[in-house]
Design a protein around this nucleic acid. Structure first.
Lengths: 238, 238
DNA sequence: TCAAAAGTGTTTATCTTACACCCATGG
DNA sequence: CCATGGGTGTAAGATAAACACTTTTGA
């Protein structure tokens, strides 16, 4: 009886390309000499063992920082996956042991979800795969299940927290927001009613700027005003 | 660098005595010879290390079973507490090492909350302390913080899941339910409107039984009908 | 002038909230 | 007969849902 599994964090990093909700996957073959690469891709979520004396939240922040160069991005712990047979796939176990150089029997992983604004300029561009969340390939470990649960949580939280803006550029049109909501919630929303609810929120403010070079009436840009949001939250509590 | 903290589960077990929301605490002095007992009580949440080859949910179920004799009770993972300085209190660390007989530097704990029906006949009665959640004494480790977070989650989930009934006897009056809601949500609810919302739920059914020997108009007993509840959930999805 | 998306109001049904009195029972 | 909680209805305001047309732009 040894009673101490290893503990890791895994990050489900969501991104939105304007059309679809994406999740960031990394390929374990990447960086290996070509002859060692497996024929099929070997995809997984970004993650890491939690270091000694490192808080678990800090470990998740570190994973994101190392991968994307970004700090201060939205990150939430959402579930622990600790089934003893998470490592039942021999290839997964072998990879873990060879990359960590440790004898590992069991890993309990703490899953985080994260929301980032997609840019071509992210330092990870080209080194990672942004895969459609609705059409996932086979993944290592139980990572498919982790993504599914993360998506469920994202869907629920969308009603409670102003998180959609984490996935959009700083300035965005109502249409972009509308599409994002429809995709995350997998439903159709009436656009007049959608605009009405935005007005009721009160924390989206119109910028002095419109779309340019579009073959239709140009749309107003908006931004999310954190100050107004927090102010209204406070009023609600009182 | 060893990279493997120990992993435990801790259970925040809520109970309702008709007046207040309680949480189950155990005393680490219990069972020790009197001369070894610390002068102040040494209270903590029930918990356990996760055994090798044991799923974490299973570990939480085991803790509950061992303590209360009950199975099939409501249990939900809600947060991981993994700060490296959870064991900064020397007395806590010493206790851990002496009860587990292991050299332990760090414990990452997965917190569950659980809802049970209080009975005088629970096998743990007398061996544990049911403490008011709103007036907690000092507790070992970060257990006070864990309970606080558990209460927050309970409050939120009360709106989403039919969990109040897990805290009440199988048959209960509207008044009991009403008081429970007021206590969990820490607010006053209008009783006519409260009854109206119950009618709208549709899954509370009146039994052919009323209170007896009460010095007022006897109240109707109700039960929670799981079948109707699931049926309505299903209709909602379609 | 056409295609494409932007933007705008009204009506109806539903839900929420506030509010006051009589009833049944045991002591 | 009194104290205690049980149980009931209504009106006003807020919210949610359905629904169609005009505007601005680039091609």
């Amino acid at each position: 009886m040894q009673l101490n599994p290893h503990v890791s964090v895994d990050c489900v990093i969501f991104g939105f390309d304007g059309m679809n909700l994406k999740v960031l996957l990394i390929d374990r073959n990447m960086g290996l000499p070509p002859k060692l690469q497996k024929a099929p891709k070997s995809l997984k979520l970004p993650g890491s063992m939690v270091y000694d004396d490192e808080d678990i939240d800090t470990a998740a922040v570190r994973v994101l920082k190392e991968l994307t160069g970004l700090e201060n991005i939205y990150l939430q712990q959402f579930h622990v996956f600790g089934s003893p047979d998470r490592l039942k796939n021999k290839a997964d176990l072998k990879w873990l042991q060879s990359t960590t150089k440790m004898k590992i029997n069991r890993v309990v992983t703490i899953a985080y979800y994260s929301l980032i604004k997609l840019h071509k300029s992210l330092p990870c561009e080209g080194k990672v795969l942004w895969n459609d969340v609705l059409n996932l390939p086979n993944l290592a470990f139980d990572h498919k299940e982790i993504i599914q649960k993360g998506l469920d949580v994202l869907r629920r939280e969308l009603h409670n927290e102003p998180i959609a803006f984490e996935l959009l550029p700083k300035k965005f049109t109502i249409r972009q927001l509308h599409i994002l909501y429809e995709i995350i919630l997998d439903t159709n929303l009436d656009s007049r009613n959608f605009r009405k609810s935005i007005n009721k929120w009160g924390y989206l403010v119109a910028l002095n700027e419109k779309e340019k070079n579009v073959a239709h009436k140009p749309a107003q840009y908006f931004k999310f005003d954190k100050r107004i949001y927090h102010q209204k939250q406070q009023e609600y509590i009182d």
